[in-house]
Amino acid sequence: MRTALITGITGQDGLYLTEFLLAKGYAVHGLVSPRGEATGELDGLVEESHLHRGDLTDLASLMRTLRRCEPDEVYNLGALSSVSYSFDNAHETSSVTGMGALNLLEAVRLHTESDPGRIRVYQASSSEMFGKAQAAVQDERTLLWPRSPYGVAKVFAHYMTINYRESYGMHASTGILFNHESPRRGPEFVTRKISQGVARIHAGLQDHLTLGNIDVERDWGFAGDYVEAMWLMLQQDLPDDYVVATGRSHSIRDFLDLAFGHVGIEDWTPYVRQDKRFMRPAEVDRVVGDASKAERVLGWRPTVDFSQLVAMMVEHDLSIV
């Protein structure tokens, strides 16, 4: 039986990855912050004995966790992933998202010094690294130009992973994941804010949504598809870097069209307000990824398209309200 350690196991991607690995017959361990992460959705997935108290900012706790679970694979999904939060808390975001990745890499390096490739490492990189995109479609060779403290921290973690791979012979891969959503997405993210808002408006529980810039375009996929790409990267003989994306961009207006349309509201403009408080100081106007390398090398392709994703999220929130 293979063993995996997941940081950020209680987040959207961590939950989907846990389900995926358990179905593959893995023993799954998770790193849970001593600050107290909610583990409710993990009930029935991972036994309490497989959760370890630790923190990406604490190298000693990472070393201790590696000794306890002796993983074959480590998936670093842990981060402070809210872009808006990163503008107000740049230092904390840099510490957890950037330096946290370095701490994990160093812990694995020290733990496997005599056999550097024994533990395979996945680092969750992000399309936010492209920021002010320098190409119409972004791939693994596109220049990185982050436009938020979160994006900058992810660039640091990304290049540090490559550096450890090249310097120490570690089997460390990065997945440059474009926006990926699901019913498990946190309510602080715009997609879930919309799906929840539409469900509540439909049920008569609220009368409007307040959003920021609704003209930005993103490459949106389904998180359940994207965790398979993470796993496939660690099954390769050689580590590498891969863009994971659908190859199509849509605006928030498009998301609103589909979400409101799903409940029979064709004109959503009376229900949506814009507020500068929800706009970024430095905006990322449009990103769209080229995942042809992932398709060619990993055999990976997304299975859920944009309209299916929006319908899935709205249906979930309708069932809640």
Rank of each mutant, 00 (worst) to 15 (best):
Lys193Cys: 06
Val152Cys: 12
Arg120Ser: 14
Pro116Leu: 01
Leu211Arg: 10
Asn103Ile: 01
Glu166Phe: 00
Glu113Gly: 00
Tyr150His: 01
Ser114Gln: 13
Pro149Gln: 05
Arg141Asn: 12
Asn179His: 03
Leu209Pro: 07
Ile194Phe: 04
Arg165Phe: 05
Met160Val: 05
Arg200Glu: 15
Val216Ile: 09
Tyr168Met: 08
Gly98Glu: 14
Ala203Tyr: 06
Ala199Lys: 06
Arg118Ser: 14
Glu106Gly: 02
Tyr168His: 14
Gly186Trp: 04
Ser126Thr: 09
Pro149Thr: 03
Gln196Leu: 06
Gly197Cys: 06
Arg165Asp: 04
Glu188Lys: 14
Tyr159Pro: 01
Tyr150Cys: 11
Ser195Pro: 08
Gly204Trp: 07
Arg109Ala: 15
Asp139Ala: 06
Tyr122Pro: 01
Tyr122Ser: 08
Asn213Gly: 00
Asn103Gly: 08
Thr93Met: 10
Val152Asn: 00
Met170Asp: 07
Gly175Trp: 04
Glu140Cys: 06
Glu181Pro: 00
Lys154Asp: 11
Ile162Thr: 06
Asn213Lys: 08
Tyr164Asp: 09
Ser182Glu: 08
Gln196Ile: 12
Val152Met: 14
Phe189Asp: 10
Ala135Cys: 09
Ala203Cys: 12
Ala101Trp: 12
Val155Lys: 06
Ile201Lys: 04
Thr97Lys: 11
Pro146Arg: 01
Asp139His: 09
Pro149Ile: 02
Ser127Ala: 15
Val155Leu: 02
Glu92Gln: 13
Ala153Phe: 06
Asp115His: 12
Ala153Thr: 09
Arg184Glu: 14
Asp115Thr: 10
Val155Gln: 05
Glu113Phe: 05
Val108Tyr: 14
Arg120Met: 12
Ala101Cys: 13
Ala153Pro: 09
His171Pro: 07
Ser94Glu: 12
Ala203Leu: 07
Glu113Cys: 00
Ala135Leu: 02
Asp139Val: 01
Met160Ile: 02
Pro183Arg: 01
Asn213Arg: 10
Glu113Val: 11
Thr93Phe: 11
Ala172Phe: 07
Glu106Val: 03
Val96Lys: 06
Asn103Val: 00
Thr97Asn: 11
Gly98Met: 10
Thr174Asn: 15
Tyr168Trp: 09
Ala203Thr: 12
His91Cys: 07
Thr97Leu: 13
Ser94Cys: 13
Ala107Glu: 12
Arg184Leu: 15
Leu102Lys: 12
Gly117Cys: 10
Gly197Val: 04
Ser167Lys: 10
Gln206Cys: 14
Met170Lys: 00
Arg120Asn: 08
Gln206Arg: 13
Gly131Asn: 07
Phe156Pro: 01
Leu110Gly: 10
Tyr122Cys: 03
Met170Glu: 05
Asn163His: 10
Arg141Phe: 13
